[in-house]
């Protein structure tokens, strides 16, 4: 792995989620959930299927509207903003299911991550103005650096859809990094990866935190990875927060054991 990308040079804000409630036509998907992602830490959000983790991510990135509660990133309230404005504040996200265009090359897919950092509009692109070409070249260089950081530099010219599944997930992580985020939302980043790819992804995530100081909010079912990487853990079950704290404490919490393994084994 080559040298990590340089830090963005701005301070990393904390993410504070307070009393977040989301209801869909009578179903309460999230019920007064609260937690804080401290700057520069990896915070894991775990829980059984249907616990509300993905709903929480969708509220944080502006895809769903919160019924009640607040989400603050530094001074900004996120619950009232559309997705692209939240992205503009430096929130990057990868999706649980792949969201890469299959035919575009990996490099072009990563360039999409530069959208918020570039300015070329229809007229400049259509007329191929020199300013557009310069901007394109500068950002392609940065994209190649980031690809090298996650270990995809050999795959840049290939169509994203032709990569093995694990590398496509990695490409999506690289695309989120191309947004130069202050907060990364990772929805099951290692699902479907080989052991080797899992190790590499885990080291990329650790590298993001340690050398860039970016905060990471992580949803993941691989408990080994969560326990190794996370600085703190929030556990959800049926839309409620049932535990919150350091990984070691949460692991032994009786409520968590009950949620994962059922009533009998806790007794």
């Amino acid at each position: 792995m080559t040298a990590p990308p340089p830090p963005p040079g701005e301070h990393i804000p904390a993410l504070e989620v307070r009393d977040l409630t989301v209801r869909f036509a009578g179903l309460t998907a999230l019920d007064a959930v609260g937690f804080t992602v401290r700057p520069g830490t990896v915070h894991a959000l775990i829980g059984p299927n249907g616990a509300g983790k993905s709903t929480c991510f969708n509220v944080l990135s502006g895809v769903y509207r919160a019924t009640e509660g607040s989400v603050r990133l530094g001074p900004h309230e996120l619950t009232a903003l559309p997705p692209h404005r939240i992205a503009d504040l430096g929130v990057g996200r990868i999706f649980q299911n792949l969201a890469l265009p299959p035919r575009a090359t990996v490099e072009d897919s990563l360039m999409l991550g530069r959208h918020r950092l570039t300015r070329t509009g229809f007229v400049a692109a259509g007329l191929r103005l020199p300013s557009a070409a310069r901007e394109e070249a500068r950002h392609r260089a940065r994209v190649r650096e980031i690809a090298a950081f996650v270990g995809l530099e050999q795959q840049l010219a290939r169509p994203a859809g032709s990569l093995p599944y694990g590398q496509q997930k990695l490409a999506e992580l690289a695309r989120a990094l191309c947004m130069e985020p202050k907060l990364l939302l990772l929805d099951e980043p290692v699902a479907g990866m080989t052991a080797d790819e899992r190790r590499r992804t885990a080291s990329v995530i650790a590298g993001v935190r340690d050398s860039l100081g970016i905060s990471v909010l992580l949803v993941e079912h691989d408990m080994g990875l969560v326990m190794r990487l996370a600085d703190s853990v929030t556990v959800l079950d049926f839309g409620r927060r049932i535990a919150d704290g350091a990984p070691g404490d949460v692991q032994n919490d009786p409520a968590v054991v009950r949620a994962y393994l059922g009533e009998e084994s806790a007794a």
Binding site: G62, V63, A87, F95, P101, R175, M179
Partner: peptide
């Protein structure tokens, strides 16, 4: 290709 992802990417 991915309307929701496009918004989340800042478009």
């Amino acid at each position: 290709d991915h309307r929701i992802a496009a918004g989340v990417m800042g478009i």
